[in-house]
């Protein structure tokens, strides 16, 4: 009986933690439990959630992606640059102008392309994901600097800005975007063959191969999706600031790994869920927001977040030993 309780505890650990956190914060701060603050938190976590959805898929295959923050910056910079300045093709003597939709598509394409590159280096050249994406981290950062010359690209116009600052039916557009992404990827992971294959590859890659799954293709797809979602996050960040910062997204990969882990997804692959990651992002968001409302120093926020990550992984390990 005790065993059953413990595995259940492990499964719902993040939900329990979130509930405790919500109740605690409501009691401690009057301004916490308001609609405005709720939407505020959702808007704040939307960027991290975008990254973390992709990170969840990648970690489910027992991989890791350290390049999402850099891809975020590159996608945002490309979209902003194309929108503002167009693209000059010296060879053809042409100058291409981009509409808002065109630049959004280009930003997403750049993100997906970088992710695809990750997937290919990991499967074709057998690089460990940690190394492959560390390389992409540096490549994408460098390309961002080359593209922007190291200066922010600003003044992108209102219709592009709507991605980050718009409000629809009283709810911020970034929240709409991430909510629909959550819906799509929950469906993808739970109800499609591809989703099931992701779990199988992460749970036991060799068994998946011997069962006839196209393991390499699945991995490439997962990293490509991760890159594309980093592109989405890049567009949101850029639109919100009305400016593509060359240093956007620094350290975001760590926040998203933290959210995935706190959400109960195992770093060794095969176990976890997109919904868990949503809860993980909420925990980080509520923690940051609540500690801010309580006037706790942001330095302490980092310390607390660190302990939360350690606790989440420790509980995961203990329940893994149970099994």
């Amino acid at each position: 009986m005790l065993k059953l309780d413990r595995t259940h505890l492990a499964r719902f650990q993040s939900l329990i933690a979130l509930t405790v956190l919500l109740v605690g914060m409501s009691l401690l701060s009057d301004s916490f439990l308001t609609l405005e603050n709720g939407l505020n938190i959702l808007r704040q976590i939307s960027v991290n959630l975008c990254l973390s959805i992709g990170m969840t898929l990648i970690i489910l295959t027992a991989g890791i992606d350290l390049s999402v923050g850099a891809i975020l910056a590159l996608s945002g910079a490309v979209a902003a640059g194309l929108l503002k300045n167009g693209l000059r093709l010296e060879l053809l003597g042409m100058e291409l102008q981009f509409t808002v939709l065109g630049s959004i598509a280009a930003g997403l394409l750049v993100g997906a392309g970088a992710g695809f590159f990750n997937g290919v280096t990991i499967t074709r050249f057998k690089l460990p994901p940690f190394v492959a994406t560390l390389g992409m981290f540096s490549i994408a950062r460098g390309l961002t600097m080359l593209w922007t010359g190291g200066f922010p690209v600003t003044g992108l116009g209102q219709s592009f800005g709507a991605i980050g600052t718009g409000v629809f039916l009283g709810i911020p557009v970034p929240v709409w975007i991430t909510a629909s992404l959550v819906g799509i990827f929950v469906l993808l992971t739970r109800r499609t063959r591809f989703g099931r294959h992701i779990y199988a590859v992460g749970g036991n890659e060799r068994a998946a191969l011997l069962t006839g799954l196209r393991v390499d293709r699945i991995k490439v797809a997962v990293y490509t999706l991760g890159g594309m979602l980093a592109g989405v996050a890049g567009l949101i960040v850029t639109a919100r600031l009305d400016s593509a910062q060359p240093n956007a997204g620094l350290g975001y990969e760590l926040d998203s790994i933290a959210a995935v882990v706190i959400g109960g997804t195992s770093l060794s692959g095969g176990r976890g869920s997109v919904m868990g990651t949503v809860i993980g992002c909420l925990i980080i968001g509520v923690l940051n927001n609540g500690l801010f409302l309580l006037n706790v120093s942001p330095f302490w926020q980092q310390v607390v977040k660190g302990f939360v990550i350690l606790a989440a992984v420790a509980i995961d390990r203990m329940s893994a030993q149970e099994r």
Partner: peptide, 9 residues
């Protein structure tokens, strides 16, 4: 265990 099953499933 190594080649046949996905133990987490």
């Amino acid at each position: 265990k190594h080649d046949g099953l996905v133990l987490s499933m």
